[in-house]
Design a protein around this nucleic acid. Structure first.
Lengths: 105, 105
DNA sequence: TTGACACGTAGGAGATATCCTACCTATTGT
DNA sequence: ACAATAGGTAGGATATCTCCTACGTGTCAA
């Protein structure tokens, strides 16, 4: 139930978060993903490996392509991890709204 | 509005996530925080610096103590960042429920 | 005012991350 | 069968992380 360290570590890289974002539009082959990055493909492959090992993406072979798709379960765990912190920003928002309400007088 | 890279980088360390967890119970001095860790204090100071620069904690000097408190705003941004991924686990949960419903026949 | 306390900073060692080039494997089209 | 395509692996250079010890700074208490 606790979030695996690998998930937070995987999310620490902007390139890997960008991969996840691209996969929001559906499965994508490595070559198509690569077009969105300045790095060489082997570097992207490494990022994909990190994402795979964190359980954030999965791979399906389709002919000579490899389609990567989003696996969001670990992100749900991150969301759960955030829960105890919610009240800390809820109260901030409440204070702000109170402030705005006063302004409205 | 996008999450700063520093926030995800800060969250990548289990020690730093543990600090955030401890601060859920309220502001704490460095010495009290240190009791929960095997590392030496200078290492903890470094982690606190990373958290500070990510805007996740803030420091208040109280006599010769320094009280650290949680600053959850960046975590709200992480929560916002997660939003587009929600439907990916929502549908998973829905599918699971459908499956269970069928089992119940 | 002087010693003890609470922390931070400096600097360095070792591990890990991130990028690269070169090369290997598997699949497809001809 | 063979060249081209898609993508991974190997290995290395450099940067960054994470920990350490040693030391500096500010504050309090006697």
């Amino acid at each position: 139930m606790p979030v695996n360290d690998d998930v937070f570590a995987a999310l620490a890289s902007p390139a890997r978060r960008e991969v996840l974002k691209l996969l929001l539009d559906g499965p994508m082959a490595v070559g198509d993903l690569a077009e969105h990055f300045a790095m060489r493909r082997p570097s992207l492959s490494e990022h994909l490996r990190v994402l795979r090992e964190a359980g954030l993406v999965s791979e399906r072979r389709e002919g000579r392509h490899r389609l990567y798709s989003l696996d969001a379960d670990p992100l749900r765990e991150v969301s759960d991890w955030l829960t105890p912190y919610e009240r800390f920003w809820r109260t901030k928002l409440a204070s702000l709204r109170d402030l705005l309400d006063e302004e409205d007088l």
